[in-house]
Amino acid sequence: MWNDGAKLLELEATKSANSGVLPDTGRKKVLVIEDHSSLNYLLGIRLRHEGFEVSSAFDGIEGLERALSDGPDLIVLDLGLPKLSGADVLRQLRSHPAVFEVPVVILTGRRDYEVPGLFDEWCSVRRVFHKPTPSSRIVRVISTLLES
């Protein structure tokens, strides 16, 4: 549903994505792995507004790297990612004790999202959102998950 829209948005999104390893500010950290830059950007804005630290990745490889380096408290993961699919990112994360238990919120453009065994094998998946779900609702759920 989402597309790489205005160049400006892409630039803004890249800027926030390149902010590097998050400093430890005591705030909860959310990693958004989503290749559609305007959705990534939008989630970032809303999550920061809610008081979270946000880092962004735009493909599966980058997402995996950031998951391991940034120490997020929650990961928002799109299933349809370039370079490494969301399902593969999940499988890779599973083998890392440091991130094994980090809760994950899945985004998917497909209604038939079920990758056999995917969610059984990784119990940290807390919610699956079908696009286009309003970002406000996604962020509300993330807030609830991180508060509890």
Partner: peptide, 9 residues
Amino acid sequence: KTPLTAIQE
């Protein structure tokens, strides 16, 4: 739909 969703959001 893609840009429209972005506008709405």
